[in-house]
Simulated scan of single mutants.
Amino acid sequence: MPSKPASGPSGRPDAGVDLPLRRQEWDLLVRLPRTVLVTACAGDERVDAVAGVEAIAAGQRSRALLVRGVVAAIFAEQLTDNDIDGPSLGTAAVLADCGFAMRLLAERLGADIALAYGEWLMDIAASVGRTAWQAGRIRIGGVEIQLAERRFVNGIARELARALHR
Rank of each mutant, 00 (worst) to 15 (best):
M1K: 11
M1W: 05
M1P: 13
M1D: 09
P2F: 02
S3Q: 13
K4E: 10
K4T: 13
A6I: 09
G8V: 04
R12C: 09
P13R: 01
P13G: 03
D14P: 00
D18V: 06
L19Y: 15
L21W: 06
R22Y: 03
R22D: 04
R22S: 08
R23V: 11
R23S: 14
Q24P: 02
E25T: 07
E25M: 05
W26K: 04
W26N: 04
D27A: 15
L28M: 13
L28E: 08
V30P: 07
R31T: 10
R31W: 06
L32S: 06
L32Y: 07
R34S: 09
V38S: 11
V38A: 15
A40W: 04
C41T: 14
G43W: 08
V50I: 14
G52Q: 07
V53C: 10
V53E: 13
E54T: 12
A55E: 02
A57W: 07
R61T: 06
S62Q: 02
S62G: 06
S62M: 06
L66Y: 07
L66C: 08
R68V: 01
V70A: 11
A72L: 02
A76R: 08
E77I: 01
L79Y: 15
T80A: 08
T80V: 06
D81F: 08
N82I: 08
D83W: 12
I84R: 13
S88W: 04
S88M: 12
A92H: 06
A93M: 09
L95D: 08
A96Q: 10
D97P: 00
D97F: 01
C98N: 03
A101W: 02
R103Q: 10
L105R: 08
E107A: 13
L109W: 03
G110E: 05
A116Y: 02
W120H: 15
D123E: 13
I124W: 02
